[in-house]
Every structure is written in structure tokens, then in C-alpha cells.
Design a protein around this nucleic acid. Structure first.
Length: 841
RNA sequence: GCGGGAGUGGUGGAACUGGCAGACACGCAGGACUUAGGAUCCUGUGCCCCUGGGCGUGCGGGUUCGAGUCCCGCCUUCCGCACCA
């Protein structure tokens, strides 16, 4: 049985062998010195490109997912460098957040210490992985230099009324003991820990993202085709713009009418009851003076609903529950009295928290009506495709939501759905009873967190002055040390216990006051980090306007689809806010978006508990950095998931060794003029270089690698071919092209080849090989001759051949004649120069 | 239910505006060189029958001289959202 050590020994005694670890050790120090990827070097005049990888969370070392994402981002960044662009490709750390805090609680270490250790480890791994980052621009969001600007931006938004505090029912994670944004609740569970989320009434900070709902939606037109359709669709759904109408209902015994939102105002005559969200203020008010038994029933129901988790709420076929409030609303269309119910199927925070129920044409209302014996009335005559009336919803249990003619609806009778909606909306507006309205699913962004490891809100609560902004010159409001603070979750921010820190003076009146003790959602940090990279040291502003004009928007953003709504929506929101404040020109932050797939193992996401975890470090040790990078890039389309079990890092290593040996075989001198070299080989080289550029630009990296492999195969053949041989100038030209092509994916091997070929470092800045267009024109093409669509012969013909000439050649072919036989030729299709199809019979 | 994808050899995947299906790899088989091979190189490898051919891109139709690609109807899957009135 051999061990890994034996192998190493064998490799070491054979210096002719491609040895990834030796090559890595050779070139890393050289690159540290040369800094080939420093961006914005003064006065070199290259046009700019901004390539951005989503910055990592520093929880442990890099894993296989990072390895894929950074390999892909690197191909793009390195490609644009080779094409002569000044490429900004920065990296930093999304360093605030729960994992650091949980580690601190579990192991008693300071979150800052833990975080910075992980950052150091990841940074070392990125260096080894040869990521083409500009190491002079790194940032970590947990540093006061960074989060100071979170606070500064918050204050600007506070001034504009875009940051505000209000009490409301919020998503609450009982395990993490913190509030969650809507976006952080996934299938009724906490995005981080998976605990079932409950509701809690708290006063919290919000960003008024709903003010931007329309623009966030409409500006997606700019992103069409440049962002994955899926992400755009998800954002569209999330914003959830819905057009309909508001309708005001008088509720007996209440002074003000109650407004409801509906997408089907045409069915107003079909409304037979009225439902308010049980957990709404309105419901509370409507039972305030109710009889004791009603009050009691309501309270019991409310308590039951409060105890229900989001998951139970979400289960779709659970029965419709509710209580009758013994109040009545009046239908403005026909003056009918409708009973008012409270139920949990109506949401307090959508529309107005109350609905008119039309059981004939809304399935939820119908379910409720049937469960509580309420009347069902059909006001739209909906027919099936054969023109037959659909069965009565009250009997079938199926509400008819389709189009049809209005019936039993007074002035609307005989109209179709769309006409009726228009007519009634106008009428309502004219009567001052409502009118057309737009409603959104999107809610304001809840940014308060009751945790330690985050950005403190720069707000002081003063008994006299109220909510007071900390003046800019007192920023940053630094986090107090974690020593002595109980970080464990308890529903109150740990900062509240830092009494020395909390007690302060009011910036406005100078009297005693207290600091706000919540910290900001870490998504605030990541909503503008791409701007901080532009001027990471700047002390006077979050970012430099001139630098932003130079680099923004990001040309290519690379990251996981997990951030399809959260981060990407927030970053778009911030960009628009900054634009409106006059700080930024573009209104969208990311021009193109690539969502790389996930790395799986044996058909499932990797995890320690599943036992299918592949460790990046071990893979790098076994196969070398270049082979792992190549494996990731070659695996398939970058947006597809990859299964590590289907891939072969050993195969990648074999290819790299093959390519590497080419360089050692070249015998011509540096600078040899390739023009006298083998013409067929030169054609292959130039074709591959031209194709690879197109493929990389269209993000089909796997195919670009395949084309490079073809070139390597052609070069191997040429070198071994007596007619061409290693001294042929075209061989040098081709191998140098391979080195440049490989520099995008396998930088160590490429650099070593480059040196073997007699060049100075760095191959990363060597420049994309110039393509000679003349060499892309073939001197012959293969014309396919089909008989009735089946290929019967192939002819080598000049590319400029005429249709008539090609037809004659084809019809003269023996194979074609044999295939036609006695059958009469009906038609001959000629597509010069590539194809002839003879149609017989 | 609403929305977005995806179905091509044993496997990962190629195929520009309809024009040679399976590029490039992995795996497998055979061979060369070898004390040895997990190195390197060469050959073969969609399926079926006997050369020659026939059949083949989830299924069924259609358009076309010609369909993996376009149209219609299905099936199977993956993902996101989901009581949003």
C-alpha cells in the first residue's frame, strides 16, 4: 500500500514533472511583489472595469462554495486585465452578525477577536488560491472605520424621513431572541437557525423602502437580459405590485368609514360579509365596546392566533377560522348590511387589514363562508370553454375567479370583468368612496436587531428632546467592549447592560440621555460596501464621488442566488437613495449579475452532519490550486449546480501537466516571428483565441476551457509531427497563447509556462493575444451533401463557392448518385458553402 | 395555486440567427513504454442488426427541403413565493 508521502517523494525526484506545490511556492512571493492587480494606478490611462465578488462572511475558512465563486469571478477579472482594462476587483468581509456572537457565547471569545482571526485565515487562503484581488483595498464591516459610515448614512436617511421608528407586530425568532426582517423569514422559519418564527409587538427602526417600490420594480427593465430572469422574477414577486381599488364601507356605530383594498371592485355587489385581521388595531377597536361574550370569544381567538407559529399559519389547507364581532358594515353599492368578522386569513399589514368578502368569486372567502354558514352570491356569469355556466360555488365549493358578464350588479350588469372594474372604480372615485389604487406586497425594511455584534444606531433618546441624532463629528458611535456583557439572547439588546456606554448627554440640550441600544441589520453593511471599495481609506465621506463616477456601476457582480431578494434589493434601494441625495450618478448598482450554482456532493448540499463534506484545503493539498480552479470552471455552465462527485480534479491536473510540458518542448527563441510557422497550426491558435474571448465574455467559461484543450491537443500533435516539430514558430505562438488563456484559470501553471518560454512575470498582464483576422478565414470548408435530409457525402470546397457550382459538384458525387438511385429529383436546396440537400420522390 | 428554470451517451456537458447531434472531458476497454503504474503516449467508446444500413436529444402531434433548436398539447423534475384580498 502506497501512501501520499511516497508519491511526494516520487514527484520530488523527477524534476521534469509538473509539481503544483513547487510552482505555487515559486510564484506567490513574486506576485506579492509585483501586485499585478492593483487598480487605479495613477496615469496609466486604461479604461476601467469593476468586477465584484460578493464578500464572504468570516465564519471559518473558505469552503468549496467560495472556491467555485472566486474561481469564476477571477476568470472575468483576469480576462479584462488581459484585454487591457484597469480592473477593480476588490474583496472584504461582511464581518458583523450572529455567527461571531454565537461563537463568542459558546466559546467565551470576543466576537471581534474571533472574526479577525477568521478574516486572517480566509485572506491567507485567498492568497494561496491566487484570487486576483487588489489587496490594498480590503475592508471589514466590523471596523469602526467602516460602520461609522453606516451610521452617517443612517443619519442622512433619518433626516429625509427614510429611517424611522414605529411599533408593530414583528417577526421574532425565539431562539436567537431577535427581530427578523420579512426577507429573513423563510417558510415561516428563521433564516439563520431554522426555528419557527413568532410575532411580537415592538418598537423598531425601519427604512422606508416602500417609497421606492415603483422604482425598484420599473428600473428592472434596465437589468433585463443582464441579470438572471429568475432573480428579476423573484424581486418582482417580492415587491408584488397589485392594481385594484380602495372601497370605503360605513361600519355602523363608527364615525369614520373603513377602507378595504380589492383587486375585484367589479364584484362589489357580491360582497356578503366583511373581514378584519384579528391582530389589527381595527379589530381591537371594533370589539372595544362589545358585549362580554363577544369580547371573550374575540380574546380567546386572538390568543389562539398569537400562539400559532408562522409555519402553522402557512399550511395551506387549514380550515378558515374567525369570530363574528356582532357589528355590521354597509355595502356602498346596494346598502346591504354585512356582518363583520375577525379572522386570521386576513393580514393586518397588507392593504388596510380588512377585506370585503366575495365568496362567489374568491376561494378564500368561499372557504370561510362555507365554514361559517355565510351567504354566497354569484355576480359574474363565468362560463367554461364550451360556453356552459360553471357550477354554483356554494354547491361545488369552487369560487369562479374568471372573466364573464356581470349579473345582479345593477348598473354593471352586462359588462365584462375589465369594463366593470373600470366603471365601478371611476364611480367610487366620483362618489368619494374610494377609487383606483396600487398596493404592494413589499413592507418597510426592519433594521433593528437586539444583538451586540453590529452597528449601533447613532441616536440618543432624551427625556426632553426625544429622538436626537448623534452629530456627524461624534461618529463613530463605537461598540463598547464585550467584556462583562452578557451576549446570550434574552430579547433585549446586550448593549443595554453597558450602562456607562448607554448613559450619555443629549447632543441637543446637554441633559442626561441614553443611547439607542439596538444594532443594525447586517444587510445595511452590505447595501453599500461596493462603494466603500472605491476609496476605503477616505475619512471625510463614505465614498469619493469622483471615484464613483469612474468605477460605478459594477460591471459584473458574481455571487450566490441566495441573495436574490435580500441583499440585491437592499443594495438597489441604497443606490437609488444615494442617487436622490446627489451622491451618486447611477440608479442601479450592478450592471450584470452572475449567480453561480452550488457545489454539492453526492447529490446533496455538503454538510458535516451528512458526512459528505469535501474540504477545500484537502483538495488543494491533493491536486494543487490550479487543478481545483480548473475543475470548478470546466465543470459546466457557471450558473448550474455542480456535484463534486461527478468531477475529476485528477483529470484537470493531467491536462495542466500536459499543457505545462508544451512550454518545455518549445525550442524556438523568445520573440520568434510566427508568420513563417505552420499555417494550419496558426489557424487553430487564432481561432481558439478568438473564440475564447467571445466565450468568456458570454460567461461560457467551460466551453472556453474546452477550446483551450483543443489547442493543447493540436500543439501536442504538431510538436510530435515530423513535418512541424518543436522548433516551428507557430508552436511557440500557440503555446504562448495557451499560457495566456490558462492565466485566467490556472495562474500558477500559466506563470511557470511563461517563464519557461523565456518571459518575465507576470503572464497575468501579458495581454490577450492579437487575433489575425486573415487566419480565421478557412481556405476550404466541408460542404455536407444530404439526400432527403440524410448525410451522404462531404465535399471540400472553397469558402466563396457559388450556389450553382456547389450544386453541380454535389450532383456529380458518386455517393449522392448512388443514394438517389432511380428516384426523381424534386428539388435541390443549396446553402453555399456548407450544405446541399437533394429532395427526391 | 402563482412565478422561473431544466430534461441530449455509462457520467459532466457541447451544438452561433433551424443546417454534420454528442465538441471537450470523466469513466471504461484494448495496446505501447515499463520492475511497477494512480505517470506518459496511442486506439476505441450513442444504441441496434451481418458488410451496408437502421434508430436516436423526456412523450405525442405540427410547421419546414431540413427541428435538440420554432409552434401546439402532455409528462417528469428542480428552484423561488405562497391566505397579499
Amino acid at each position: 500500500m502506497t501512501t501520499q508521502d511516497d508519491r511526494t517523494t516520487v514527484d520530488a525526484t523527477e524534476p521534469e514533472r509538473w509539481d503544483p506545490h513547487a510552482i505555487e511556492a515559486r510564484w506567490l512571493p513574486v506576485w506579492d511583489e509585483a501586485k499585478p492587480f492593483a487598480a487605479g494606478a495613477s496615469g496609466d490611462g486604461r479604461p476601467g472595469k469593476y468586477v465584484l465578488d460578493m464578500f464572504p462572511y468570516p465564519s471559518g475558512d473558505l469552503h468549496m462554495g467560495h472556491a467555485e465563486a472566486y474561481a469564476l469571478g477571477d476568470v472575468i477579472a483576469r480576462y479584462w486585465v488581459q484585454q487591457g482594462f484597469d480592473v477593480l476587483h476588490p474583496i472584504g468581509w461582511d464581518a458583523f452578525g450572529l455567527p461571531a456572537e454565537n461563537a463568542a457565547i459558546k466559546r467565551g471569545v470576543d466576537p471581534g477577536v474571533w472574526t479577525r482571526e477568521n478574516i486572517a485565515q480566509q485572506k491567507a487562503s485567498m492568497r494561496r488560491y491566487a484570487c486576483s484581488f487588489d489587496w490594498d483595498r480590503v475592508l471589514a464591516t466590523c471596523e469602526p472605520d467602516y460602520y461609522r459610515w453606516n451610521q452617517w448614512l443612517f443619519l442622512r436617511m433619518h433626516e429625509k424621513g427614510l429611517a424611522y421608528r414605529r411599533p408593530s407586530q414583528v417577526n421574532w425568532c425565539p431562539k436567537d431572541q431577535t427581530v427578523l426582517a420579512n426577507e429573513q423569514v423563510v417558510q415561516g422559519r428563521c433564516e439563520r437557525c431554522g426555528t419557527a418564527v413568532t410575532k411580537k409587538k415592538l418598537t423598531q427602526w425601519y427604512f422606508k423602502i416602500t417609497d421606492y417600490a415603483d422604482r425598484l420594480l420599473d428600473d428592472m427593465d434596465q437589468l433585463q437580459g443582464a441579470w438572471p430572469d429568475k432573480v428579476l422574477a423573484m424581486q418582482r414577486n417580492w415587491i408584488g405590485r397589485s392594481t385594484g381599488a380602495d372601497v370605503q364601507f360605513v361600519v355602523e356605530g363608527r364615525d369614520e368609514p373603513v377602507t378595504v383594498y380589492t383587486t375585484r371592485p367589479d364584484t362589489l355587489h357580491g360582497a356578503t360579509f366583511f373581514v378584519v385581521a384579528v391582530d389589527s388595531d381595527l379589530a381591537e377597536e371594533l370589539v372595544a365596546d362589545a358585549a362580554p361574550d363577544v369580547r371573550e370569544a374575540f380574546d380567546a381567538y386572538l390568543e389562539q392566533v398569537r400562539g400559532t407559529t408562522e409555519i402553522e399559519r402557512l399550511s395551506s389547507d387549514r380550515p378558515k377560522t374567525g369570530v363574528f364581532l356582532h357589528r355590521y358594515a354597509v355595502n356602498p353599492a346596494n346598502g346591504e348590511r354585512m356582518p363583520v368578522w375577525a379572522a386570521d386569513y386576513v393580514l393586518a399589514d397588507y392593504g388596510h387589514g380588512a377585506v370585503m368578502a366575495v365568496p362567489g368569486h374568491d376561494q378564500r372567502d368561499l372557504d370561510f363562508a362555507l365554514a361559517h354558514d355565510l351567504p354566497v352570491r354569484v355576480v359574474v356569469d363565468v362560463r367554461d370553454p364550451d360556453g356552459q355556466p360553471l357550477p354554483d360555488p356554494a354547491v361545488s365549493g369552487v369560487a369562479t375567479a374568471g372573466d364573464g358578464e356581470l349579473v345582479g350588479s345593477g348598473p354593471l350588469d352586462g359588462l365584462r370583468k375589465a369594463e366593470a372594474i373600470e366603471r365601478i372604480s371611476e364611480q367610487l372615485a366620483a362618489d368619494g368612496l374610494g377609487g383606483p389604487t396600487v398596493t404592494y406586497r413589499l413592507r418597510d425594511w426592519l433594521i433593528s436587531r437586539q444583538r451586540y455584534w453590529g452597528t449601533p444606531f447613532p441616536i440618543v433618546h432624551c427625556p426632553g428632546c426625544g429622538e436626537v441624532r448623534v452629530p456627524d463629528d461624534q461618529l463613530p458611535v463605537e461598540l463598547p467592549p464585550s467584556d462583562g456583557l452578557d451576549l446570550s439572547p434574552k430579547g433585549r439588546s446586550p448593549l443595554a447592560a453597558a450602562t456607562d456606554w448607554v448613559s450619555t448627554t443629549c447632543p441637543s440640550c446637554g441633559g442626561p440621555a441614553e443611547r439607542d441600544t439596538d444594532t443594525m441589520d447586517t444587510f445595511v453593511d452590505s447595501s453599500w460596501y461596493f462603494l466603500r471599495f472605491l476609496s476605503p481609506q477616505l475619512q471625510t465621506a463614505p465614498f469619493d464621488r469622483a471615484e464613483a463616477d469612474r468605477w460605478m456601476p459594477v460591471d459584473q457582480y458574481v455571487g450566490g442566488v441566495t441573495h436574490a431578494i435580500l441583499h440585491l434589493l437592499y443594495a438597489r434601494f441604497f443606490t437609488k437613495v444615494l442617487h436622490d441625495m446627489g451622491m451618486l450618478t447611477p440608479t442601479e448598482p450592478f450592471t450584470r449579475l452572475l449567480n453561480q450554482g452550488m457545489v454539492q456532493m453526492d447529490g446533496a448540499a455538503m454538510s458535516k452532519s451528512k458526512g459528505n463534506l469535501v474540504r477545500l484545503g484537502e483538495q488543494l493539498d491533493d491536486h494543487g490550486v490550479d487543478a481545483i480552479r480548473l475543475t470548478m470552471v470546466f465543470a459546466g455552465p457557471p450558473e448550474d449546480d455542480v456535484d463534486w462527485a461527478d468531477l475529476s480534479a485528477a483529470g484537470s491536473a493531467r491536462f495542466l501537466a500536459r499543457a505545462w510540458r508544451l512550454a518545455r518542448d518549445v525550442t524556438s527563441a523568445v520573440g520568434t516571428d510566427p508568420s513563417t510557422g505552420s499555417l494550419p497550426l496558426r489557424r487553430v491558435t487564432h481561432k481558439v483565441v478568438a473564440d475564447a474571448a467571445q466565450l468568456v465574455e458570454s460567461l461560457r467559461f467551460n466551453v472556453a476551457v474546452a477550446r483551450t484543450m483543443e489547442l493543447v491537443n493540436a500543439l501536442r500533435q504538431a510538436i510530435d509531427d515530423r513535418e512541424v516539430g518543436p522548433a516551428d514558430p507557430a508552436v511557440r505562438e500557440g503555446v504562448e497563447a495557451v499560457a495566456v488563456l490558462l492565466s485566467l484559470v490556472a495562474p500558477y501553471t500559466a506563470e511557470d509556462m511563461w517563464a519557461t518560454l523565456g518571459h518575465e512575470p507576470c503572464v497575468a498582464r501579458a495581454g490577450w493575444p492579437a487575433v489575425d483576422e486573415a487566419l480565421l478565414v478557412e481556405d476550404t470548408v466541408t460542404a455536407v451533401v444530404q439526400v432527403k435530409g440524410k448525410v451522404r457525402d462531404r465535399l471540400e470546397v472553397p469558402p466563396g463557392i457559388g450556389e450553382d457550382e456547389l450544386r453541380e459538384l454535389a450532383m456529380a458525387s458518386e455517393k449522392v448518385i448512388a443514394s438517389i438511385g432511380d428516384a426523381p429529383v424534386r428539388r435541390v436546396i443549396v446553402r453555399a458553402p456548407g450544405l446541399v440537400n437533394v429532395v427526391t420522390g
